[in-house]
């Protein structure tokens, strides 16, 4: 990467719209996989994470980054130049959280979970995973899912099902999760129930 000017969308208005619809559809239909418009990776920031931040973050939204990303000058320069979003150290202060891998991610409960009055004031976590399918199968239920669905992303946090159940228990509070890999995105809003099984 030569310049911080790189990495933005060539046609920001239209590409943001297309990519936003992918994210919106992903969250409205939890567990389904949607094609994201991506530019390119920026240092340790995957192209998918970069894309989500370009679409959703700006001066008004704070971003938490894992240690690997926060230590990467190219990532910080890219986010500062293209989004203007302030980078915060405390996960509880973040509107968006970007994590380059599950091992870098603190427990969900450490992020902003919103309040009972304002459950919308919570963190949306964007997690780069090795793949959105091919891993252990989990069962999903809830709004946006007809009956029940299956997901099998690779590279979730170790105690994911337990952590997620705790997150679901807090409803309407809780974090929302976007998983991203291979130019695609999967949405898991706090309303989704996830269990092990086939």
């Amino acid at each position: 990467m030569d310049s911080v000017l790189d990495g933005g969308f060539a046609e920001p208005v239209m590409q943001s719209q297309t990519a936003f619809r992918a994210i919106m559809d992903a969250l409205a239909n939890p567990g389904t996989i949607r094609d994201l418009v991506t530019s390119k990776p920026i240092g340790g920031l995957s192209a998918e994470l970069a894309s989500v931040m370009l679409i959703l973050a700006d001066h008004d939204t704070s971003i938490w980054l894992d240690d690997a990303l926060r230590g990467d000058a190219a990532v910080l320069e890219f986010l500062s130049f293209h989004t203007g979003a302030p980078v915060v150290r405390a996960p509880g202060a973040a509107v968006f959280a970007g994590a380059s891998s599950a091992s870098q991610l603190p427990a969900f409960a450490q992020f902003n979970l919103g309040t009972q009055e304002y459950p919308d004031r919570s963190t949306t976590i964007v997690l780069a995973v090795p793949a959105l399918s091919g891993g252990e199968t989990l069962i999903t239920r809830g709004p946006g899912i007809k009956g029940h669905g299956h997901i099998n992303p690779v590279g979730l946090p170790k105690d994911f099902v337990v952590q997620w159940a705790d997150n679901r228990e807090l409803f309407p509070r809780g974090i929302d999760l976007l998983l991203a890999a291979d130019g695609q995105v999967m949405g898991l809003p706090r309303s989704t129930r996830i269990s092990e099984g086939h």
Partner: peptide
């Protein structure tokens, strides 16, 4: 495009995503 500036759209888009995550709120 679509009248609103991009910053306003981003703000509304973020609200839409939260609304979807918390149905009826």
């Amino acid at each position: 495009f679509a009248y609103l500036d991009e910053q306003t759209k981003r703000m509304i888009r973020r609200a839409i995503l939260k609304a979807i995550a918390i149905p009826g709120y």
